Simulated assay, not measured.
Amino acid sequence: MAFEDLKIEVSRIADKIEDSATSKMTAICELLRERIEYYDWVGFYMANHEKRTLHLEAFAGEPTDHTVIPFGKGICGQVAESNANFVVPDVKAQDNYIACSITVKSEIVIPLFKDGKNIGQIDIDSSHVDPFTKDDEDFLEFVNVQVAALL
Rank of each mutant, 00 (worst) to 15 (best):
D15A: 13
E18S: 12
D95Q: 07
F113H: 02
N96M: 03
E50Y: 04
D90F: 09
N96L: 01
M25C: 06
A84G: 07
R33Q: 09
K73N: 08
W41K: 02
V10C: 03
D19N: 06
L56F: 07
V79R: 00
I102T: 15
G74I: 07
E34Q: 09
Y97P: 06
C76A: 11
L31H: 04
Q94R: 08
L32I: 03
E34C: 13
A60H: 06
Q78N: 07
D65R: 11
C29K: 04
R12S: 15
S11V: 10
L31T: 05
T67L: 10
V88R: 07
V104E: 01
A60G: 05
I28L: 11
R35S: 12
C76F: 11
L6W: 02
Y97Q: 09
Y38G: 04
P63H: 01
V68L: 06
H49W: 11
A60K: 01
T22P: 06
Y38C: 09
T22N: 10
I17S: 09
T22Q: 13
A21F: 01
P63G: 00
T67Y: 14
T67R: 11
D19W: 04
P89F: 04
M25S: 00
A47Y: 02
I36T: 00
V10H: 02
E34A: 11
W41P: 00
K16Y: 04
Y38M: 09
E34M: 12
D65C: 09
E37S: 15
Q78L: 10
E50V: 12
I108Y: 05
G74V: 03
K24I: 00
K24F: 00
G72R: 01
T64R: 03
P89M: 08
K114W: 12
E18I: 13
N83C: 13
P63Y: 00
L112G: 02
D90R: 12
D90Q: 07
A80D: 00
F113V: 04
E34S: 14
E9P: 08
Q78G: 10
N83Q: 15
G43F: 03
N85H: 13
I75H: 05
Q94E: 12
T67P: 08
T103R: 11
I69F: 07
K92S: 14
G116I: 11
A21K: 01
E4D: 13
